[in-house]
Design a binder for these strands. Structure first.
Lengths: 215, 215
DNA sequence: AGCCTGTCGACCAGGGTGGTCAATATTAAT
DNA sequence: ATTAATATTGACCACCCTGGTCGACAGGCT
């Protein structure tokens, strides 16, 4: 594993990408080290020279991914924005940038969280839990509740808004599946997304909150 | 396959359940006929006596599931309810009943739709597309648009409402995962669900629409 | 020359695959 | 009771893939 860190960046990244993709697609058990080495363009032996076992590799990836998400996503969120929906808008943008920088990490963490079946090394488990905790704070902490209508339960409004945003993102993902990320002009989709957010504001905020659009 | 239909209901159902579960959990490729026969409590040979191949079995299950959904779910939806949210409420209830009657069918169709990779027999493909079409009509057709606020795009409101409902259902599913369906008292969850629906009405409907709650 | 460090891929034992088939057990027909 | 037809089984097949090992070899350094 120290051996691995001595490689040139490029080769490291190629192996990381291959492994992240394989685990993301098949989960831990059904992921194949053979496919990983083929995809990474290295000999079988090297993988077990760098990492002493499949599990060792997996845990390395987990830690790597968690660190990546914290550094390139969580730490870049502006928590001074007190408008809940604006905050989520900003969060979506930062997340998108991080995803563009390394799509595989997010895919990996997706299946990692779903199939976190076996026992991880404790320090990774801890990092994982810390990430979940800060991820939550990042969204809910320090938001201005006074923007919300008085006649709805704010906690429920939170959830409805999050579900709506997740719904849009899932639909978009599904619609664009198969197209290469680089060939897509995302601007119209961002516009559409903002329109949904405006509707959410109209629906869940008090009348007169924020900037009204008198077009 | 005619052989299969000659079996007593009970045995048929046991085999169907075993197979549906296996495919639901692992998808077509990674599903194991060995596990199916073990779970169903029959000899390996019988499976290939009833169905001539794994693929044959899979297509039979697909058709069976589609028929089940149409008969026990779609055909029971009351399309005269013009209130969009009330219709979705009613739809959720009917779906829940159908799911209670045969959970495996819905799980199977879930992964079936996601991983509909290889070419199905054309008549099944047709049934599948017809199901999607009527599923859509079932939700959107003949709804009273005048209930919605004038200042939001109704099409977008439709989507936001659906995403919200899906979000609630997913969260509930996740929260209850692992518990046996029969041991759960669902009433409080229905109550909670209705509260969310009321918020959606307050948010997306005109003031004064429907029955107001003057508590 | 030796020695260290990388690198490879053939190879291993083990396990799982969909599918077959000779051997039975069961039932029906005569 | 005998035969014929039908159900049912599980050992077996050839094949594929698994995580991991290890001898061979390459190149740089001393």
């Amino acid at each position: 594993m120290e051996k691995f860190k001595g490689l040139d960046e490029e080769k490291q990244q190629k192996i990381l990408d291959a492994a992240l993709m394989e685990f993301a697609e098949h989960g831990y058990e059904k992921a194949s080290t053979n496919r990983i080495v083929k995809e990474a363009g290295i000999g079988k032996g090297m993988l077990f020279y760098y990492f002493k076992s499949k599990k060792d590799l997996y845990e390395f990836l987990a830690e790597y991914s968690l660190d990546f998400v914290v550094e390139k996503y969580f730490s870049r969120i502006d928590m001074t924005e007190a408008d809940f929906i604006e905050r989520l808008k900003h969060t979506s943008q930062v997340k998108f940038e991080a995803q563009t920088e390394n799509k595989n990490v997010f895919n990996f963490l997706g299946t990692f969280m779903l199939t976190a079946d076996f026992k991880l090394a404790p320090h990774i488990q801890k990092k994982y839990e810390a990430m979940q905790k800060t991820g939550n704070a990042m969204i809910y902490e320090n938001v201005d509740l006074s923007l919300f209508r008085d006649d709805v339960d704010v906690q429920k409004a939170f959830k409805l808004i999050r579900w709506s945003i997740e719904g849009y993102q899932n639909e978009l993902l599904h619609k664009l599946q198969g197209q290469s990320m680089t060939s897509i002009d995302f601007n119209p989709y961002w516009e559409e997304f903002y329109e949904y957010l405006e509707i959410l504001k109209k629906s869940f905020y008090k009348k007169g909150s924020g900037i009204d659009d008198y077009s």
